[in-house]
Design a protein around this nucleic acid. Sequence first.
RNA 1: GUGGGUGUAGUUCAGUGGUAGAACUCCGGACUGUGGCUCCGGCUGUCGAGGGUUCGAAUCCCUCCACCCACCCCA
Length: 447
Amino acid sequence: MLKAVRGTRDLLPPDTDLWNRVEAKVRDVMERYNFHEIRTPIFEDTQLFSRSVGEETDIVSKEMFTWEDRSRAIPAVPVLEVASGTRGRFSGQSLTLRPENTAGVVRAYIEHRLGDKGTLQKLYYIGPQFRRERPQKGRYRQFYQIGAEIIGPPSAGSESPIHDAEILEMLATLLDEVGLRDWQLQLNSVGGADDRARYNQALREALKPLLHQMCADCQRRAETNPLRVLDCKVPKDQPIIEKLPKVSEYLGEASREHFAAVGAMLDTVGIPYTINERMVRGLDYYTRTTFEFTHGGLGAQSAVLGGGRYDGLSESLEGPKAPGIGFAIGEDRLILALQSQGETIVEKLRAYIAPLGSGMNPHALKLARELRREGVSVDIGDEVFRLKRSFELAEKAGARFIVIVGENEVAAGQFAVKNLATAEQVQVQRAELAAYLKDSNPQPRKS
RNA sequence: GUGGGUGUAGUUCAGUGGUAGAACUCCGGACUGUGGCUCCGGCUGUCGAGGGUUCGAAUCCCUCCACCCACCCCA
């Protein structure tokens, strides 16, 4: 049997109802904050990611789905095939399934000269991303991210800490409105590019005499990415890590003030957060503010979303100066977290129409058409003689009401409507049926 | 890439060398104008795959595969 390949999965009803509810809420919140949707291609030139996310990161160095396309986009370089003699070969273009979406958004910003509009661009996206990692709870090879970016020329205020705070406040609102309880916001500043270089250097030197006491992973990290040492969870390394230099001591004056301003605004607005100087982000483009929202109930992958500022990203892609800040929500993880709280869709269907006996199908379809055109969600069964069967099917369909369409009803122009939860039954005139079904308050179903 | 766990009916699982099972689901009936309950009957399996040991393997051995969890890393 052919199956979905490793790390990918089908999303099926009723789960997709929850996914759609989350996405509808996201679009609603984004609109209120004046963000507008951007859709970028699902694959890009490989260089986009190596130059933004960073050549040395795990994502680029070992997790990307990359292939060579038979493209003419790159100047064709004929390579003489010595063996076959005459036939040439074209060097293809290296393409990659996007492992994240910020790079694509910034590429589009540069390509379409969005900076020339002179205003701040507030963009959001919802879509699949791809990383070739070993799957586990909350981690898939095709996964979904909901993200947003505020980016623009400095003259439009893109560097202002108010946008860091605005993004964080929006996230708090979004998580609250979507129904996630008990989230935690962790905040840090990794400083500008200069600050980070100096801090990296300081860490390397501080680690040098201590390395032999530390775990094998840390010895490796000290070489490749000293910041990652801070993220180590091995107990015996903790006392050593506690004594390492802190990022905050290496922030320049501007970064320090910027970070303080973000914190002050969050305090004023009343968003709770904790500063975690050991929080490390794995993408090279982050500068200054970085953050993570976490939630229990996610297993080892506790981060439900992450993000930060990327003031130099546009320039590293040969674009104009365009500081920005953004985040990505792991939608799969958000759904997992909601489900771990017992979140489900309560009402699946408003009304189930039960045609009773021979010849009632045309009447049922006509009534269904009328109701559906009035905006009522309706499903119809096939004609049966045993009402018991219809009730069971209505129940199984998750309907709130059952509407009985029999000869008596059609002749009288009024229908028997029964609330499946309360067992209350009334006769309703055909003309008033849609209004009746729509106006009735949903009652909690007996379980 | 590394480690651990699990693979038996649609689902959850029991079954430690001797006829493949239970519960739920599903289908039919009791029951052709009022559901959730009850009762009766029924369907469903290459026991993850391949090989080996044995008179005999779901069970023991080997190899492989898949899924889950964790490391790593990240959303």
